[in-house]
């Protein structure tokens, strides 16, 4: 048996367009479905230009939020300058709780559903959860700062705070599961199941802690106890902050996704090398 080695340029047409790391690698004899999927994903990512555009837009909207939030908007009523966290905290929470973990859940379902099964979804789910966990940690930190200046405590056992903390642990667990070894499809199944259990748990935790203790402001930005009204430039700035978080999320997820592709290509290259070493072992014995 011989190994097909695509070390030279243009040896195989399908490999022309793929970045270096995948290009140099020797191919495994025969092509599996997973292999084909990785190849086409690598090709697609090489042609992808929109990531950079999204990244630049994300940066610009973030800067805009910063300028508007710090210098243009007036101090928020009652809350004063602390109220400027309005331009950070809600958007981050939205990005973490709905955007990121929603995507992870849907992508995990799409892997488990046989008709849409593709490793693409597993990568998306993982990338989104990682970014989500980052946003969630930032949400907790900004929330804690807000709590300290508003209520005088860093932490309070209120419903949403507790939920957020539990959720963070859930997703850290999910990321730990992702790092466990196995074949790519076995891993994807395991990951998806873990993500789904976490997703099932979210409404449950939400419901029970909500009931358990409700001291916090209601979820809407119109909070009766603070009589806070959002309008005019404040609303506009908040809106921009949501756009910024979304763009940055898209950018980071895409970046992480491409990163995972390269990791897998590297792994495949590594496998090919070990196969060659194995072949040498058997040649030596002969």
């Amino acid at each position: 048996m011989t190994l097909e080695v695509n070390a030279t340029k243009g040896n195989s047409e399908s490999y022309d367009q793929i970045p270096n790391v995948a290009h140099v690698e020797p191919r495994l004899p025969g092509v599996s479905q997973e292999d084909g999927e990785l190849d086409s994903a690598l090709r697609a990512s090489y042609h992808c230009r929109w990531r950079t555009i999204v990244g630049v837009l994300g940066l610009l909207t973030t800067l805009l939020t910063l300028v508007l939030g710090l210098f243009v908007t007036p101090p928020v009523q009652v809350l004063g300058n602390t109220g400027r966290l309005l331009y950070v905290h809600p958007a981050l929470a939205w990005g973490a709780l709905y955007l990121a973990f929603g995507t992870t859940t849907v992508a995990s379902l799409l892997w488990l559903w046989k008709r849409t099964r593709s490793l693409f979804w597993d990568r998306v789910a993982g990338a989104s959860a990682e970014v989500g966990a980052l946003f969630l940690a930032l949400t907790l930190i900004t929330g804690s700062i807000w709590g300290r200046t508003t209520w005088g405590v860093w932490w309070t056992w209120d419903a949403r705070l507790t939920l957020t903390a539990v959720l963070l642990v859930l997703y850290l667990g999910y990321m730990a599961v992702r790092s466990v070894g196995g074949s790519p499809s076995a891993k994807a199944t395991r990951n998806s199941i873990t993500a789904l259990i976490a997703a099932v748990d979210v409404p449950i935790v939400h419901f029970s802690v909500d009931w358990w203790n409700t001291l916090h402001q209601k979820a809407s930005v119109l909070t009766p106890n603070l009589n806070l009204r959002v309008h005019g430039i404040i609303a506009v700035t908040m809106g921009i902050s949501f756009v910024a978080v979304t763009l940055i999320w898209v950018y980071l997820v895409r970046l992480r996704y491409e990163n995972m592709l390269l990791e897998q290509a590297k792994e495949r290259a590594y496998i090919s090398i070990s196969i060659q070493e194995r072949l040498k072992e058997s040649e030596d014995v002969k």
């Binding site: 004899p29 025969g30 196969i275 194995r278």
Partner: peptide, 14 residues
């Protein structure tokens, strides 16, 4: 020509 990978190690190499 069976190759079997356990993790990323080819325990059987063709």
């Amino acid at each position: 020509n069976v190759i079997s990978l356990v993790g990323d190690y080819p325990v059987l190499a063709g």
